[in-house]
């Protein structure tokens, strides 16, 4: 009997944490289902680009994706914009409480009406802010042209800091920074390092202000049509692959940061408690503004998780 084929398409290189996670899932899934399932991984947007992969999934042209969480807003699930809010997750513990707890589940349910089932949240990491001048206090951001990826929340975040957000494709950022089309940007350390942005940024502050993550999703009709035992095996495989992917994402961020520090082209600045408080203060209005889009309750539910972890929100 022919194996069930799952086309798993993503938009990054195979060597990235997400790429390795996808590869790991392929290995585990094929092993756990005894070859009843064959996973074909298509990295680097080979089949579908950033902008079209979600539609392709809904059409059933691919079965599995791992898009960035920012992609779900335009799909009609604006609640996912909550992940973009600055300082909504004070640390990784709170993040995990959300993604692995009831809030994460509830968010995934919003996708079902779009013909999508969410299987897992994969980390990319927390973002740091970089530019060609020191960014100690929020006021240092005033007037800077900052590259963001297309997102209403990130736009509002930069504006709240007095900066001018510039939407730009990830692949163009290095050159834009080098030539001064934009002054700075925000990235998890691993992205900053792989794109060599530290070569063209003099300063970076370890703000860890925002979170970047992915969701592994499948076509609902396809998923529900699978034999129950296969589905169970795939879920187990996904759980292990998720742990694997998140661990290497963390490791990758740590080594990237160390390597950029060693390269010496960028000065990395650790925030003092007061500085962090000032940034949080300056960015708090963004949460309030976002209420009308993502829903007040959702934000408060996340606050509750943070408070349960000992933070005052």
């Amino acid at each position: 009997q022919d194996p069930i084929v799952i086309k798993f398409s993503h938009v990054v290189a195979p060597e990235t944490p997400k790429g390795k996670g996808a590869e790991k899932f392929r290995e585990l899934a094929e092993k756990m289902t005894n070859g009843r399932v064959k996973i074909e991984v298509y990295p680097n947007s080979q089949l579908y680009k950033d902008k079209e992969e979600l539609e392709a999934l809904q059409l059933g042209a691919v079965q599995m994706l791992a898009p960035s969480l920012a992609k779900f807003g335009p799909l009609g699930a604006k609640e996912f914009e909550v992940f973009d809010l600055p300082y909504i997750f004070p640390d990784k513990v709170v993040l995990q409480r959300v993604t692995e707890g009831p809030v994460g589940k509830k968010l995934f349910q919003k996708l079902e009406s779009k013909g999508i089932i969410g299987l897992a949240y994969w980390d990319n990491g927390f973002k740091i802010m970089s530019a060609n001048k020191p960014l100690t206090m929020p006021a240092d951001m005033k007037g800077l042209k900052m590259r963001i990826q297309s997102s209403k929340v990130l736009d509002a975040q930069m504006r709240a800091l007095g900066a001018l957000p510039q939407v730009m494709a990830f692949s163009e950022v290095y050159q834009a920074l080098q030539t001064g089309v934009v002054d700075g940007t925000e990235n998890p350390p691993s992205n900053m390092y792989t794109q060599k942005m530290h070569e063209v940024q003099k300063h970076a502050t370890l703000t860890n202000h925002g979170y970047l993550g992915y969701a592994v999703i499948v076509n609902k009709k396809f998923w529900e049509g699978l034999p129950a035992d296969v589905r169970g095996q795939l879920e187990t495989a996904m759980k292990e692959a998720t742990k694997f992917a998140n661990d290497i994402a963390q490791a990758e961020n740590d080594t990237s940061l160390a390597q950029m520090k060693a390269a010496g082209t960028t000065q990395f600045h650790e925030q003092s408690k007061e500085e962090r408080a000032a940034w949080m203060q300056a960015l708090k209005p963004v949460h309030k503004d976002a209420e009308s889009r993502v829903g007040k309750e959702l934000i408060e539910e996340i606050y509750k998780e943070a408070e349960a972890a000992g933070y005052k929100m």
């Binding site: 680009k49 079209e52 059409l59 059933g60 042209a61």
Partner: peptide, 11 residues
Amino acid sequence: PIDAVALKLFT
């Protein structure tokens, strides 16, 4: 699925 063609023709 051949619908992917329509998608690609736009994107």
